[in-house]
């Protein structure tokens, strides 16, 4: 005897079981090779379109800004020229100090601070999701990018880390994402307190620093940098400035709200640290 709709029922059950199994795989971090291939193919197809839209959008914006702010741009240009002159003067001083620093390091046999190896990339899009905003950049495994590499802005502020890399594109998880966490440290002489910096889902403009010891010295305007305790991040990458400190866990720990130096809107180019 056959029940009506029996076959359909089993097909639906089968599909659900398959989907849940694959979902569980991806939660466990187990990579299904075919999925990775499909992702790669889809991104390859989407990439040119994303690039075109981003470029067109940017040139329209640039043109519009130029047209509406011509006078302002001219004034700004004058100011900037002055500023360059000032900075050049400072650079002479800086070079002198650097040389002195090198000499003293040699004298004391200190290890030299090696700058990170970086690769530059353009942001070509974000993921189409209202809850999680990941960036898509135009560099991938062919440029030496792999998962978990730290991503910074051109002025060195932490942006996030690579979640996944395909041949020519990668997905970047931002520090404001709930799936992101890194060990942070207060950067000042009298306090070296560490805590866990993580994203906050409800406010994309701040990140939270949790689990700071109750007696740690931390206050508004303190600079927070990466501590180097997280394996995948070098130390001393600036994250942001503290805007609020509150007691947590009945006074056992403190929590700080941090305004990150990187802000989501104007990111157009990033650097990926490939080696440190």
């Amino acid at each position: 005897m056959r029940l009506p709709g029996e076959r359909r029922f089993w097909v639906i059950i089968g599909v659900i079981i398959l989907v849940i199994t694959l979902g569980a795989f991806s939660l466990q971090g187990i990579k299904v090779k075919e999925m990775h291939f499909l992702e790669s193919v889809l991104y390859q197809i989407l990439r040119p379109f994303q690039k075109i839209v981003t470029n067109v959008n940017q040139s329209i914006n640039d043109y519009w800004t130029l047209v509406t702010n011509l006078k302002k741009v001219k004034l700004e240009n004058q100011d900037l020229k002055k500023r360059v002159d000032q900075l050049e003067l400072q650079l002479v001083d800086y070079n002198k100090i650097t040389l002195e620093n090198q000499r003293l390091r040699k004298l004391l046999a200190f290890k030299e601070l090696v700058p990170y190896k970086t690769v530059g990339a353009h942001v070509i899009g974000t993921t189409p999701n209202n809850w999680v905003h990941n960036l898509i950049i135009d560099r991938g495994t062919t440029d030496g990018i792999s998962a978990k590499m730290p991503v910074i802005t051109y002025n060195g502020a932490l942006v996030g880390h690579i979640a996944e890399a395909t041949a020519n594109t990668s997905r970047v998880v931002l520090i404001t994402d709930v799936n992101f966490a890194v060990s942070g440290r207060v950067q000042k002489a009298e306090s070296r307190a560490v805590g866990v910096v993580r994203g906050e889902a409800e406010d994309q403009d701040i990140v939270l620093m949790d689990l700071i010891p109750w007696d740690a010295e931390i206050e508004e305007d303190d600079l927070i940098v990466t501590s180097g305790l997280s394996e995948n991040f070098p130390m001393d990458i600036p994250i942001g400035k503290v805007i609020l400190v509150i007691e947590k866990d009945f006074g056992l720990t403190q929590q700080a709200e941090i305004r990150p130096f990187m802000s989501l809107a104007p990111i157009e180019e990033v650097l990926i640290i490939t080696d440190f």
Binding site: I16, V19, I20, G23, S26, P128, N129
Partner: peptide, 17 residues
């Protein structure tokens, strides 16, 4: 299609079905 783009796998398939 959506799950592939988002990197995770399963959530959108289950909901959209």
């Amino acid at each position: 299609l959506q799950d592939i783009i988002l990197g995770g796998f399963g959530t959108n398939i289950v909901i959209k079905i």
